[in-house]
Design a protein around this nucleic acid. Structure first.
Lengths: 165, 165
DNA sequence: TCAAAGTGGTTGCGTGTGCAACGAATAGCG
DNA sequence: CGCTATTCGTTGCACACGCAACCACTTTGA
């Protein structure tokens, strides 16, 4: 069995070292980060991951369609559909059909939804800062650049262009 | 509204820029990578993500308990339990109680399971190489180091020490 | 030595997810 | 124009997941 010496894997034999296998490491790190963040929006605000993403998207963009949110976040459209209808029932999100294309619905935060976002956003950012506190500012910039490259490539390699969660 | 200038977010006001929000980016990238990789092990081998992780772990370590696999991969123990019992039914994984501690069961690939691993591993590595092809070797090393730091920190911030998926 | 607390693993239950099929609306093309 | 192919969003269905309760076993400590 060869001893792997590079950062990832270049073994001549075909053995996957999980601790160095990029998709595995990405998923582990993403899960840890999601779980920790969920503590905030789930326990204190009763939001699911998809619901939080809808809120966050609308907090940033004001108007957006369900389709945009799904594609951008690599989630299935049915997931977003259900999250939106739950948020609508709670009075956090409103929808109005787009007159220019009546298949679409433009989503937006209600006042109540905006209040949730305002309460939530600083806590989310604080968590991000905690996580990033182990990296120097320069390292943070490098990380961002590397992730951009990888994400672009991963989108190109994606099975269809319809995202899943 | 402030214009964010750093790699991640240091806005004085509390607006989350999703495209720069680390937990979001991590999840998007991990989803893309998982979905693309799943093409291989799901369609061609009928394996779920947890099942693939069990196979990969046992391919690398030979003997391991369900608990180890779960903790390492930030998955719930029930997830692993079900994946293992499905793999056992298919004759890919065997289990034998650990005489030193009869609560545990040592898992291992059967010959058939090892054959699946042998067929699968090169394809998984090939996918990883495709993904990493957008990075220079030096960048790959940097990425690995940054992810290690982040993962360590994220484990420290994790809600409990019991992982979830 | 023995009761209580803790650990590895399983399973019933409720819920969330992806898929595929569908209705409504639009776009493309003969 | 009109007919087909697409696209946005919803929903029924089957399945997978997380949680909590549980069993078997081990560790702790009084």
């Amino acid at each position: 069995m060869a001893i792997a010496t590079s950062a990832f894997q270049d073994d001549p034999d075909a053995l996957v070292i999980l601790e160095r296998f990029l998709p595995y490491r990405l998923n582990v790190l993403a899960s840890l980060s999601s779980n920790a963040l969920a503590q905030i929006y789930a326990e204190r605000f009763g939001l699911s991951i998809p619901a939080w993403r809808v809120i966050a998207t609308l907090g940033q963009y004001e108007y957006r369609t369900a389709r945009d949110i799904a594609a951008h976040g690599v989630m299935h459209k049915s997931t977003i559909s259900r999250a939106v209808s739950a948020l609508e029932k709670r009075g956090l999100v409103g929808r109005r059909p787009n007159p220019a294309d009546r298949r679409e619905e433009l989503l937006a935060l209600t006042e109540k939804g905006a209040a949730v976002y305002t309460a939530l956003a600083p806590q989310a950012l604080a968590f991000e800062r905690q996580l990033l506190s182990v990296l120097e500012p320069g390292e943070q910039r490098v990380l961002a650049a590397l992730m951009d490259k990888l994400t672009t490539k991963a989108r190109a390699l994606a099975p269809d262009e319809e995202g899943r969660a």
